[in-house]
Computed example of a mutant assay.
Amino acid sequence: MTVVTIHEAKTNLSRLIARVLAGEEVTIARGKEPVVKLMPVNTPPQTKRILGTLKGKIDLDAGFWDPLPEEDLALWNGEGSSEAQ
């Protein structure tokens, strides 16, 4: 972890941003006291996703892939309402 003063952060902001985007932790301190941590807006997920982890844990009804009835399909397409108007 890198700790820099506010003055150093203002002087080297572009470099510090590049370091943070490369995965480094940067803390900005007022004097010797840490006050903020510089971090990317979109942090990557901490763990990698593994495909197939729910295999055998979820069962689909036999009719899951059947076409929707016309009435339900019309509702999905925004062509009507199930409530009386």
Results as ranks from 00 to 15, higher is better:
residue 33 E to Q: 12
residue 15 R to E: 11
residue 7 H to I: 12
residue 53 T to C: 04
residue 83 E to I: 08
residue 8 E to M: 01
residue 61 D to E: 12
residue 71 E to H: 10
residue 33 E to A: 12
residue 71 E to P: 00
residue 27 T to S: 04
residue 5 T to S: 15
residue 65 W to E: 15
residue 62 A to Q: 12
residue 65 W to T: 12
residue 6 I to S: 08
residue 52 G to T: 02
residue 35 V to G: 02
residue 59 D to R: 13
residue 20 V to A: 09
residue 80 G to Y: 03
residue 78 G to C: 04
residue 7 H to G: 09
residue 34 P to D: 07
residue 32 K to Q: 09
residue 52 G to S: 06
residue 30 R to H: 12
residue 81 S to Y: 03
residue 46 Q to L: 11
residue 68 L to C: 06
residue 2 T to L: 14
residue 11 T to G: 03
residue 82 S to H: 09
residue 25 E to N: 10
residue 77 N to E: 14
residue 52 G to W: 03
residue 68 L to A: 11
residue 14 S to C: 04
residue 22 A to C: 10
residue 81 S to H: 10
residue 36 V to M: 13
residue 67 P to C: 08
residue 15 R to M: 06
residue 22 A to E: 12
residue 41 V to R: 14
residue 65 W to A: 14
residue 8 E to T: 06
residue 1 M to R: 07
residue 11 T to I: 11
residue 74 A to E: 02
residue 53 T to Q: 10
residue 23 G to E: 06
residue 52 G to N: 11
residue 31 G to H: 11
residue 1 M to N: 06
residue 25 E to W: 02
residue 14 S to A: 15
residue 72 D to R: 15
residue 74 A to C: 07
residue 61 D to I: 01
residue 56 G to W: 02
residue 13 L to H: 14
residue 55 K to T: 13
residue 58 I to N: 01
residue 69 P to S: 14
residue 58 I to S: 01
residue 84 A to G: 00
residue 73 L to P: 01
residue 7 H to A: 15
residue 78 G to V: 04
residue 44 P to N: 09
residue 5 T to L: 06
residue 21 L to V: 13
residue 4 V to D: 00
residue 63 G to E: 09
residue 26 V to L: 04
residue 74 A to R: 13
residue 73 L to Y: 05
residue 3 V to Q: 11
residue 80 G to D: 05
residue 46 Q to G: 14
residue 45 P to Y: 02
residue 37 K to V: 10
residue 20 V to Y: 03
residue 14 S to Y: 07
residue 81 S to L: 01
residue 26 V to S: 03
residue 59 D to A: 15
residue 54 L to M: 14
residue 67 P to H: 03
residue 28 I to M: 04
residue 71 E to L: 09
residue 39 M to T: 15
residue 2 T to G: 00
residue 60 L to S: 04
residue 57 K to T: 08
residue 38 L to V: 13
residue 63 G to W: 00
residue 50 I to Y: 07
residue 41 V to S: 11
residue 11 T to M: 12
residue 49 R to L: 11
residue 5 T to W: 04
residue 29 A to Q: 05
residue 29 A to K: 02
residue 18 A to N: 13
residue 6 I to A: 12
residue 58 I to C: 05
residue 43 T to K: 12
residue 70 E to Y: 01
residue 3 V to I: 13
residue 84 A to T: 05
residue 4 V to M: 01
residue 24 E to C: 05
residue 85 Q to F: 05
residue 30 R to W: 06
residue 79 E to G: 00
residue 7 H to V: 13
residue 72 D to L: 15
residue 24 E to S: 05
residue 15 R to L: 12
residue 19 R to N: 07
residue 25 E to Y: 03
residue 84 A to K: 10
residue 81 S to P: 00
residue 65 W to S: 15
residue 78 G to F: 06
residue 81 S to K: 08
residue 55 K to E: 14
residue 6 I to H: 02
residue 4 V to T: 06
